[in-house]
Design a protein around this nucleic acid. Structure first.
Lengths: 174, 174
DNA sequence: GGAAATTATTTCAAGTCTAAAGCGTTTTTC
DNA sequence: GAAAAACGCTTTAGACTTGAAATAATTTCC
């Protein structure tokens, strides 16, 4: 009895790896690791700069960013969903941002369970100041990519997001 | 005096947004947020499944994954670099993995500052068991993408990684 | 060869994060 | 309209994470 899928081939070339692909999903794994590399590389760098230049943490910045685009404020659950972090996590971050005067927090008049948070003037002012530089940092990461590359990447990541969401949803329903 | 870059245009079309692009880096920001979405979506799902099905944490799994490909073991600093997490973080994870019998830890004979970690038989066995399913999960996320899409994405992310690394390096040197 | 700089790791404090349990509030169901 | 289910948020325990300071070992530089 032989177990070919466990054997290391004597030589590896394009044909071998393509043939091996359906069995062990090597390509997809490499792609995922590469995506994760890019993500961590950029996220770590942003975090470090935000800390060094504005003494502000990335999670706190992320919450302000969500609020800057929402004039009516946002319910906590919505923030949690958009940032893809747990609800319990948001609670303490919001508490800190209220304490530091960047946001306000009100109980919704329609639903007394819901908490609505909004930027204060100070919060908006400080966020905008940071966001300006933040945008420059980010553009720099993409500097070597052409406009065409950027468009294509936008496109492919949109597909990936859809594909992933559907996969996760399908599994939850079964 | 007018401040045109602060005004909200009366109508927004392709031309407007293209014209606005160089100033505020809107496209790059959106691309970064989309990349981050994909990354978090997938990472969160993997973490949940690893916890639920194997009662194992993702950071612990990541360390075993690095070691599985390194027969001679790895120095802690190398693990830290590859996973892009701080050195202080690795210390306690390694301590836990030694305690649970998944890895061993030896002081390097050549450099008594360096700690070399290796998979134990148990560690390798359990990692392989998890890795099999882990590969299947990941392939599923990319299910809706064609082979061509996957290749193109690999390509573009390689460019992005290069571009980002260079940007970060250039800033550190100045 | 010895002082100074660098390197590998650990320790520590503070912050972030999750899952799960708990507490009111609202909605659904009969 | 009351019981049951669902919802929004908070609390808690425990794990992860970072940056900075500390320690020990090695390398560099005169």
């Amino acid at each position: 009895m032989t177990a070919p899928e466990e054997q290391t081939p004597l030589w590896i070339d394009a044909e071998t790896t393509v043939a091996a692909r359906p069995a062990d999903h090597k390509m997809e794994l490499r792609l995922w690791l590469r995506l994760l590399s890019c993500s961590r590389l950029i996220e770590n760098d942003i975090r470090r700069h935000l800390n060094a230049e504005f003494d502000f943490s990335l999670p706190r910045f992320d919450i302000l960013a969500q609020l800057d685009r929402a004039d009516e404020g946002l319910v906590l659950g919505e923030v949690s969903k958009r940032l893809m972090v747990s609800a319990g996590n948001i609670t303490s971050l919001v508490e800190g941002l209220v304490k530091s005067g960047h946001i306000t927090r009100t109980t919704s008049s329609g639903d007394r369970r819901a908490q609505i948070i909004r930027l204060t003037d100070k919060g908006r002012r400080e966020f905008r100041r940071m966001a300006k530089v933040h945008g420059d940092w980010i553009a720099k990461y993409f500097e070597q990519l052409s406009q065409k590359d950027i468009d294509k990447l936008m496109d492919l990541l949109a597909s990936l997001k859809d594909s992933t969401r559907e996969t996760i949803l399908a599994r939850q329903q079964s």
